[in-house]
Design a protein around this nucleic acid. Sequence first.
RNA 1: UGGGGCGUAGCCAAGUGGUAAGGCAGCGGGUUUUGGUCCCGCGAUCCCAGGUUCGAAUCCUGGCGCCCCAGCCA
Length: 577
Amino acid sequence: MNESNTAPDDGNEQNGDGQRDFIRDIIRADLAAGRIETVVTRFPPEPNGYLHIGHAKSICLNFGVAQEFGGRCHLRFDDTNPVKEEREFIDSIQEDVRWLGFDWGQHLYFASDYFEQLYEWAEHLIRTGKAYVDDLSAEEIRAYRGTLTEPGRNSPYRDRPVAENLDLFRRMRAGEFPDGARVLRARIDMAAGNMNLRDPVLYRILHVAHPRTGDAWCIYPTYDFAHGQSDAIEGVTHSLCTLEFEDHRPLYDWLIENLPVPSRPRQYEFARLNLTHTVLSKRRLTQLVRDGHVRGWDDPRMPTLAGLRRRGVPPTAIRDFIRRVGISKSDNTVEIALLEHCIREQLNRTAERRMAVLHPLKVVIENYPEGESETLEAINNPEDPAAGTRAVPFGRELYIERSDFMEDPPRKFFRLAPGREVRLRYAYFITCRKAIKDARGEIVELRCTYDPATRGGNAPDGRKVKGTIHWVSASHALDAEVRLYDHLFNRPDPGAEGDFLADLNPDSLTVLDNCKLEPALAEATCEAAVQFERTGYFIRDPESTSDRPIFNRTVALRDTWAKLQARGGEQKDRSTR
RNA sequence: UGGGGCGUAGCCAAGUGGUAAGGCAGCGGGUUUUGGUCCCGCGAUCCCAGGUUCGAAUCCUGGCGCCCCAGCCA
């Protein structure tokens, strides 16, 4: 067997440092006891939306487990409801799973591939007296179902003869009845405490074209009737799903036991991922896109894999994040800070460094010869010597960050101020001589002098400077737009007190349209994020044009100075109150 | 007495009768040509109450709290 059904090796499985959780414990035990020979899992998305980071948990679990135990994982689309599903999603889902780093090899399946088999099994249930055609309307079925505390009542059609059920069901398939006229129901127990066992609907009439089967069918199986049987057809051994399906397991098992299926899959449930400051329900994400609160499914503020990709988040960071979050059965809400940490950790190791000034302030080096420039050498990645160095042009006129100058600095401010000396990274020590203001009193330019003996950033006399700041040569700078992103929602728990839309962060996107980049950034790609030194990680956005690059901020660098300042501000507030 | 599940530090999460891993966040300190990275240090008696035991987060009993289920969605 030479299948390319793999998951990336993130280096956790070598030395017993592998994942430990109740799912893997079960699989290990099943393998050890000989209950199964090969573990087979599946990732079963419904093609009705884009994949998000919550799905990544399921993807990493299913594919990861298959790889760790030498089994395989199928990608199976749960396409049983044509009124919600679209081709676009079938494509995007495959692209996103691949981008995340997983490969299903030849094992791409669709529940719709099994429609004929499922239909035959439905007839089998009818023939064995375990399913019947019900003429009740949707409202009537609901009324007959009872409530959480009261048992339901049998439908008057529950005891139809087998022959009549068979005839009716075949005519349902033949298209003789309009939508909603009849359904096929399992005959289980209308008094069951578990609502799923109160004669669940197995088939409904839907005169709707299916993205894959076209108009071949006008009756479609429900999730419950399709999922377990699809698992059985594919030989799935461990059908892993989220907690809300726990109640469905008795029905899953009932169907498997009452049908002549080729294998005996088992369902296990784990807790889905929740993240602070965002939403992960398909309904809400769809609403954000549909109502224009974001610019699309791949808006960098979205928790979708497409959004994270455009944001510059590497797939390795997502896999690492999922690994750290773990698998359990307790409801959880993971702080988004953990995700951000994983992104920084990955990017710190791999992203090349560049200099970019987001809020430019002009600096003129008065003692630097006019019209001249020179080239300085800068390290691409101090964490990775193999990344080498690059040339950065320097000249008499530069841009520095506005926040790196203060006319009247507080005690611990290490940057530029009148009379103060700082290091320009990889360049020279400069001393601020004068701040020039415009009519409104705003500082528009700094006049400085440099020490030619400090080329490269070291003083031969051994004198130290407290601060090192980044800069960009004015005459060589690239003009760019930079988009800064913040959490999409203000609250850690959007919607906890009403409409989740009311919790949208109005400042989740800040566009800076006068940024100055060092020339090497012209070569940046949309695939790999770079670090703008002292600022954060950024990635070129596909909306860039050749003459105007656009960069998205993936995540800011940790900023203990900003934290200190914020704390100081708080203290001041408290003392003045 | 409707059914199902969960409850270990601010957030995740190991632990499966032998005396509470780890990560993130936070707080101190050190190194540093990114106030980045890196390094060092600091936190829980396990929802509560009884019980079993030499010994319990782990077993038993009884409470309390939270989540899911009444789609012809998945």
